[in-house]
């Protein structure tokens, strides 16, 4: 299901979708150009988000966070189709919404690392995913962690944010 179709299902007309940036207001539009937005989510194989982080330099806004979740959720269907067409784990950008791009990395266990970003630094994103994948493996090997449950480790959170600053 594409994003515009999903928006239509949700009762949002495509016209609004097209003019979305205008309705956001001038100030936020400037924000988007100057600062980088990035939202990182890990989705378990059962389609449950197990880790979320707003890693961009834009001040966190609640409605923006909701929008990010919405876009990432919409991209899940595309990931589902794409994941089986390639043997690579890094799927590059799979979906876009205005100037926001969704890049996805699918692990062998079908856990999806999803990043919503507005930068065009593909190499950095690839390195970011690979390093987070390694951190995720460490979490997974922890005998006290139940696979598919929320990642609550603060150590993991700190490391992911540090990686985001380094690569994105």
């Amino acid at each position: 299901m594409t994003l515009s179709r999903l928006l239509r299902c949700a009762g949002v007309s495509t016209a609004i979708h097209r003019f979305y940036p205008v309705s956001v207001g001038n100030q936020q539009f400037v924000f988007w150009i100057m600062a980088s937005t990035a939202c990182f989510v890990i989705v378990s194989r059962n389609d449950i988000p197990i880790y979320e982080a707003e890693v961009g330099s834009v001040l966190k806004k609640e409605e923006a966070a909701h929008l990010h979740q919405f876009i990432l959720h919409a991209a899940l269907d595309i990931v589902q189709d794409l994941a089986w067409t390639t043997s690579a784990m890094f799927l590059k950008s799979v979906d876009r919404f205005n100037d926001l791009v969704v890049s996805v990395y699918v692990t062998a266990g079908h856990t999806r690392l999803m990043l919503l970003h507005d930068s065009r630094n593909e190499d950095g994103i690839k390195s970011f995913f690979q390093d987070v994948h390694e951190l995720y493996l460490k979490i997974l090997l922890n005998p006290l962690y139940l696979p598919g449950s929320r990642i609550t480790s603060s150590h993991f959170d700190t490391k992911v944010r540090a990686l985001a600053r380094k690569y994105l």
Binding site: K138, I139, L141, N142, P143, L144, Y145, T152, S153, H155
Partner: peptide
């Protein structure tokens, strides 16, 4: 203890 991190419940 390689890999181990105690969750809040333990």
């Amino acid at each position: 203890v390689d890999f181990v991190e105690l969750p809040d419940t333990c």
